[in-house]
Design a protein around this nucleic acid. Structure first.
Length: 105
DNA sequence: GCGCTGACTGTCA
DNA sequence: ATGACAGCCAGCG
């Protein structure tokens, strides 16, 4: 399970997934971050896919993964009910939408 | 320890 | 501007 529970342990340094979760957790309401941005903040600018992989498996209540979108503005996929639900959540959060399916990043 | 897959990204046609 | 291809990172079997 990649819930990154290791983060609790002071035994090892924060791993990529831990950083990713932390970054996503920092995203304020009404704002969205791209996978690339999160990956970059995590320390791997090209690990956007890894970010998605982590989110998919490690969906957490403290980690608003629905606020993480693609660099092209698409909300991408969502583990909770597809991009439609994700998009709807973002709208409720107050995120500015460029189009019906594209978010302003 | 190796190989495949995936909530992506960027470039070429 | 739209469609297709290849590349990269981390997790999982």
């Amino acid at each position: 399970m990649i819930d990154c529970s290791a983060m609790k342990q002071n035994k090892r340094v924060p791993t990529f997934c831990e950083k990713v979760l932390q970054v996503v957790r920092m995203i304020p309401k009404g704002k969205v971050m791209t996978y690339a941005a999160v990956a970059r903040m995590a320390g791997s600018p090209h690990a956007s896919r890894a970010v998605g992989t982590i989110m998919r498996k490690n969906y957490d209540a403290t980690v608003p993964c629905h606020r993480v979108v693609c660099s092209n503005g698409s909300v991408g996929e969502y583990n909770r009910g597809g991009g439609e639900v994700k998009l709807d959540i973002l709208k409720k959060e107050g995120v500015i939408f460029r189009d019906r399916l594209h978010v302003v990043v």
